[in-house]
């Protein structure tokens, strides 16, 4: 089997695996919708007090809320991606088996995670967003070009999201129990991706810092393109740069970790 076909099969497997949990998907859709509802009202109150906060009008702010709910599980910002499983495999030593597979560890998990992300995007992301669009006056661009540009940014966001979580998962090679690290990563992701509040609302230096960090590629970047707030090209460049840097770092850490496993005798 060619390498491309192998990883396509892995990705399809990731997609199917999550597609089998229908009840879990329905439950997730429900939960995302409830959280969307709560947030949308708080944002409305916020923008009532201060119209054009962060450069968004109220419709744009509400759209941002529902985008956030759509991306939460897609980009596994609150956990729930492949990382639990990989960490468990590292902890139990099963990862040694993965290393002997005729496939690259990073690409293997990337493919699986992209499959998962794609399913979550369709299965869990779309419905809350449509619900939001039906119940609230959202800002939805009319031209197809913007939507295509938005989807490209989403794809890049998936790469960046994977890059971050892969590094987190590999930490399990050095730490006995990765729960703590995972929780920290989850926290940082939640706050710095703009899940709680759009990054362009963050004041002063704090705002400038979070807008440079890799997490800004996850939710803020695609949202800005959809909401007509950022030029696609520079946004893509920034996302791609983070994706390359994180995946490269992942490679380095991976080879260090592999040497460790080999030295320990697997």
């Amino acid at each position: 089997m060619g390498a491309g076909r192998l990883y396509a099969a892995v990705a399809a497997g990731g997609f199917r695996r999550y597609a089998t949990y229908r009840a879990a998907t329905a439950a997730g859709v429900f939960t995302n919708t409830v959280f969307g509802l709560i947030l949308v009202y708080t944002y409305r109150a916020l923008w009532d007090e201060k119209p054009h906060l962060g450069g968004y009008d109220q419709a744009q702010a509400m759209t941002y809320v529902w985008l956030g709910q759509a991306f939460l599980s897609t980009l596994a910002i609150g956990g729930g991606g492949f990382e639990d499983e990989l960490m468990e495999r590292i902890r139990t030593g099963d990862v040694a088996i993965d290393l002997y597979r005729p496939a690259d560890l990073q690409l293997w998990w990337l493919a699986a995670d992209l499959g998962r992300a794609f399913f979550q995007f369709l299965g869990r992301g779309l419905i809350p967003f449509v619900f939001g669009a039906l119940c609230f006056p959202l800002y939805l661009p009319a031209d197809a070009g913007t939507w295509v540009a938005f989807l490209v940014a989403v794809a890049l966001a998936m790469l960046v999201g994977f890059g971050i979580r892969y590094l987190v998962a590999l930490s399990a090679f050095w730490l006995l129990d990765g729960t703590g690290v995972m929780q920290m990563a989850w926290l940082a992701g939640f706050f710095c991706s703009g899940m709680l509040l759009p990054l362009n609302v963050f004041p002063g230096t704090l705002g400038e810092v979070v807008r440079v960090l890799p997490w800004s590629s996850l939710l803020q970047a695609p949202a800005d393109i959809l909401l007509g707030h950022g030029d696609p090209l520079p946004t893509y460049l920034r996302q791609a740069a983070w994706a390359a840097a994180l995946l490269g770092a992942g490679r380095l850490v991976q080879s260090a970790a592999t040497r460790r496993v080999v030295v320990q005798g697997g």
Binding site: A24, A26, A27, G28, T31
Partner: peptide, 13 residues
Amino acid sequence: QDASEVQNAFTYG
């Protein structure tokens, strides 16, 4: 059994 997330909507939500 798979619907534990519904609970989150009511507890954390």
